[in-house]
Design a protein around this nucleic acid. Structure first.
Length: 507
RNA sequence: CGGGAUGUAGCGCAGUCCGGUUAGCGCGCUCGGUUCGGGACCGAGAAGUCGGAGGUUCAAAUCCUCUCAUCCCGACCA
């Protein structure tokens, strides 16, 4: 009780959250910085998580009537200029291609040559380039709705980057749809937000709050932006996905028109929505602990690490024999429709080293098999959602049944844990003083640690939002959908308000 | 982009203030042996153009200038 256990990750979350986050990524070997400023190399274990995210989401997109397509990475500058707010929002973070070739500079190096007549922007988002195609594809109301998704890479020249959370280049999906009516486009916008929320809940085991962004926080060029917001373990908010109702703004900019049922021309109604590799950052910060990554089974690249333990060659033969037999039997199983992947780790390392290796990588289950187990025809089973030394002996005959029972149980357990944490850290605050105290760090040395989410009244005035942002670096994360109509006073100015919104510090 | 810090072996660091033989330490790695069910131990060994460029000096990891990268704080950021 008294002696503190050594944790696999140092510092701990408590000691230095930002550094802990970096160390978890390193220990799990998810990604690393590259030689290109702000860009990451996503390593196999991290990329496999992204692929799982892709597969699961892609099925949901397909089921909701979307089809995948691909559009150019380069966007002519003139396309970009068509939507004024859009330009305003993205201009400061665009990579611009101005030349088409390299020539020898006569000093042993190369210089850019072949200046383009019109510069290309490396896509920071694709509304405008996709819009130009949509304008050609849409002629009649019979062509609608048009529901397209693209999996792509994006470049935004951010000043400050952090692995997965904000990188110069990142991977994402962007849905772009075109509709005949405002109502239909709005329905699509909200449907896709639901898909994201469902995905976060069911696969990432992360509870999210669905809501609408304020005028100040919405997507440049959108009429309405909806989002899912999640709470990380440092109690900060992470915007995990957005869905935009674009009205006719982009249709007008890209000239997406169709002949309606009366034979007249109408501008179409469009939407766009996306989630990115940032979700991996959310996953890390929602579940991981001081021993490293913790992965919900439904998104984990592999589910069971099998760790044979032996001394002599005879022991090795017997133990490996059982290990292989177990691997064989497990890897054809499915839980929740997901195929179980195993990792038989017989590297020449001590068993505890191999054990800790997989703990740090967040694999849901570890199975240790030693000579004693061969004799008793049982194995030791350890769950990543429990302490490293909590293990249970399971007869080989029951192993498949136990695995199939435990994996979904862990998924539920992780969600429950995250939900409890979040709800414990959402506080209704009605006094301005209390609000300021709540968001003022207790310890100046660790300004990261603060209260959580505040559910407070807001009058709807942008000036109040701005004031709170300036004073506390706290923003309105969203106006939640499930907010009940309620009389109250704005936390900032005291004027009448009709509903609460969520305030928090965010990533 | 502003303020601060850091950059020395694969990783983590000392050495830099106050310039001086052959640049150290821990982990990791290789070889040999003992170990192995909670991050093993003993012995031997390999590995570094001190982030890069330029300068000062008889002499630079150390001083000066510039530059690149990373981290933290800010500004910025669907």
């Amino acid at each position: 009780m008294s002696k503190k256990e050594r944790t696999a990750i140092q510092p701990t979350r408590e000691e230095n959250y930002a550094e802990w986050y970096q160390q978890v990524i390193k220990a799990a070997d998810l990604a690393e910085n590259s030689d290109v400023r702000g860009c990451m190399v996503i390593k196999p274990w991290g990329y496999a998580i992204w692929e799982n995210i892709q597969h699961s989401l892609d099925e949901m997109f397909r089921e909701t009537g979307h089809r995948n397509a691909y559009f150019p990475i380069f966007i002519p500058k003139s396309f970009f200029e068509k939507e004024a707010e859009h330009v305003e929002g993205f201009a400061k973070e665009c990579a611009v291609v101005t030349h088409s070739r390299l020539e020898h500079d006569g000093r042993g190096g190369l210089k850019a040559a072949g200046e383009l007549t019109e510069p290309y922007i490396v896509r920071p988002t694709s509304e405008t380039i996709i819009g130009s195609s949509f304008a050609k594809w849409v002629n009649s109301y019979r062509d609608l709705p048009l529901k397209i998704n693209q999996w792509a890479n994006i470049v935004r020249w951010e000043m400050r980057t952090r692995l997965f959370l904000r990188t110069t280049e990142f991977l994402w999906q962007e849905g772009h749809t075109v509709h005949e009516t405002r109502e239909e486009a709005m329905e699509e916008t909200l449907t896709m937000l639901d898909v994201y929320a469902h995905f976060a809940h069911e696969y990432l085991a992360i509870p999210v709050i669905k809501g609408e962004k304020t005028e100040g926080e919405k997507f440049p060029g959108a009429v309405n932006t909806y989002c899912i917001e999640a709470m990380m373990q440092d109690k900060k908010a992470l915007q995990s996905g957005t869905s935009h109702f674009l009205g006719q703004n982009f249709a007008k900019a890209s000239n997406i028109r169709f002949q309606n049922r009366e034979g007249e021309f109408d501008f179409a109604w469009t939407t766009s929505w996306g989630v990115s590799t940032r979700l991996i950052g959310a996953l890390i910060m929602a579940h991981s602990d001081d021993n490293g990554l913790v992965l919900p089974p439904r998104i984990a690249p592999a589910h069971v690490a099998i760790i044979p333990i032996y001394r002599s060659e005879e022991e090795k033969a017997a133990v490996l024999d059982l290990a292989k037999q177990i691997e064989e039997s497990l890897k054809h199983q499915h839980f929740d429709g997901i195929r179980i992947y195993t990792e038989l780790d017989d590297r020449e390392l001590t068993s505890s080293e191999r054990n800790w290796y997989w703990i740090k990588k967040g694999i849901p289950l570890r199975i240790e098999i030693g000579p004693r187990d061969v004799a008793s025809q049982s194995v030791m089973l350890a769950r990543r959602d429990q302490e490293p030394r909590d293990k249970q002996s399971v007869p080989v005959a029951d192993l498949i049944a136990t695995t199939l029972k435990v994996l979904p149980e862990m998924q539920t357990n992780l969600y429950g844990r995250a939900l409890r944490f979040r709800d414990e850290n959402i506080v209704k605050i009605d006094s301005r003083e209390e609000f300021y105290t709540f968001f003022t760090p207790q310890n100046a040395a660790q300004p990261e640690i603060h209260g959580g989410f505040a559910s407070s009244h807001w009058c709807g005035n942008e000036a109040c939002e701005e004031k709170i942002k300036d004073d506390l670096k706290v923003t309105i994360r969203c106006i939640p959908f499930d907010a009940k109509a309620e009389e109250g006073a704005c936390i900032c100015c005291g004027k009448a308000s009709t509903r609460r919104v969520f305030f928090a510090k965010s990533y």
